[in-house]
């Protein structure tokens, strides 16, 4: 088994620089600029249509180091949201009617402000989602996490790329499939994914390699059948998500000689309908330090909200953000290829 990966940052990789990633993406051979494709689809400049999802990335700390991670998260990352910033997030959310709070990371549950954000968001009557890597539920320090999530009716959005153990481990690290199955059994035992419980368990699958995800519906059928048959596991929905050509997945693409081919594959599969429904149009993404972004991918490329709209949660102003102009680039092909991709799965 290969040793666990370290983050790009810990390895002082050239790709730990967001500016370097953007430079690479914007000069890819054989790929037209994303904005040109948007213009042909009559969507340029892309604008938000409101805020339905308040997505909070609480930091880069994670107990796993997945090979495709767009955050470059890992145990060696120390960036986590402060209580002050978390309180600013809740103060921003409170007067709005934004229905959904989507908490992500890293492994968001490891953040000291995670439980505060859950409790406060629920107190404000919002739907709360936790983007969970599953193995975090088995950490001794998180022994009560499953119960906490169930008690607050937090929707668990859990990553499981493949029903084949070797494929899941190839992407997420040795032994992760087995841990994921154990964690899914724990969630099922709490009622997650079972009819009538009201506890929602959504699985997320990313391709284990440089290719597009399959159609969501048949893939969900396949997962449902295999997980029930082989492990007795149930879940509500499956979301398919395209791997974004940034951060550690970008490193994989470059090292495996797949970069140009993958980018061309994404660009050739550009779908105007998917572009019209991209998640950044209805999402606001808050970084661990309070900066505001159009999406979690822009956050990792350090492309803060621009064009005059507020760029920090302390200056949150829903009116100024609702129809803001969205920052786009060639990485956006990742969300507009084929059936489209978002934190909520396929978009068409």
């Amino acid at each position: 088994m290969p040793p666990p990966l370290k983050s790009l940052r810990a390895r002082s990789s050239m790709l730990s620089s967001a500016a370097e990633q953007v430079r690479l993406l914007e000069t890819t051979r054989g790929v037209p600029r994303f904005e040109e494709r948007l213009a042909v689809a009559q969507l340029h400049p892309l604008r938000a249509t409101g805020i339905v999802v308040f997505q909070i990335n609480v930091g880069k700390l994670c107990n796993q180091t997945c090979r495709h991670c767009h955050v470059d998260a890992g145990p060696d990352r120390t960036e986590v949201m402060s209580r002050e910033t978390a309180e600013r997030c809740m103060a921003a959310l409170a007067p709005t009617d934004i229905p959904t709070v989507d908490i992500t990371g890293g492994a968001p549950e490891l953040s000291p402000v995670f439980r505060y954000l859950v409790e406060e968001s629920k107190r404000l009557g919002r739907r709360v989602m936790d983007r969970c890597n599953l193995s975090v539920l088995l950490l001794p320090s998180q022994a009560d996490l499953g119960g906490f999530l169930a008690r607050h009716h937090v929707e668990v959005v859990a990553s499981l790329p493949s029903v084949v153990p070797a494929q899941t481990d190839a992407q997420r690290g040795g032994g992760v499939f087995e841990k994921s199955i154990e964690a899914l059994r724990l969630l099922n035992a709490l009622g997650y994914g079972t009819p009538g419980s009201g506890l929602v368990l959504t699985l997320v699958t990313n391709p284990v390699g440089a290719f597009l995800p399959p159609a969501q519906e048949p893939q969900e059928r396949q997962f449902r059948q295999r997980l029930a048959r082989d492990h007795g596991i149930v879940f509500n929905d499956l979301h398919t998500i395209t791997n974004m050509p940034i951060s550690r997945f970008l490193e994989f693409l470059l090292e495996s000689g797949n970069y140009e081919g993958y980018m061309q594959r994404l660009a050739n599969a550009f779908n105007p309908a998917a572009a019209a429904g991209v998640m950044c149009r209805y999402t606001l993404s808050v970084g661990w330090d309070g900066r505001l972004y159009d999406c979690d991918f822009n956050q990792m490329l350090e492309l803060t909200i621009g064009h005059g709209a507020p760029s920090h949660v302390r200056d949150f102003d829903p009116e100024a953000l609702h129809a803001r102009r969205i920052i786009t680039g060639n990485h956006c092909y990742g969300c507009t290829a084929g059936a489209g991709s978002s934190c909520g799965g396929a978009t068409t």
């Binding site: 084949v164 391709p207 290719f211 995800p213 399959p214 048949p218």
Partner: peptide
């Protein structure tokens, strides 16, 4: 090979 992977088949 690409089409099979993109339609949700695995290497197995």
């Amino acid at each position: 090979t690409q089409a099979c992977l993109e339609k949700g088949s695995n290497v197995e």
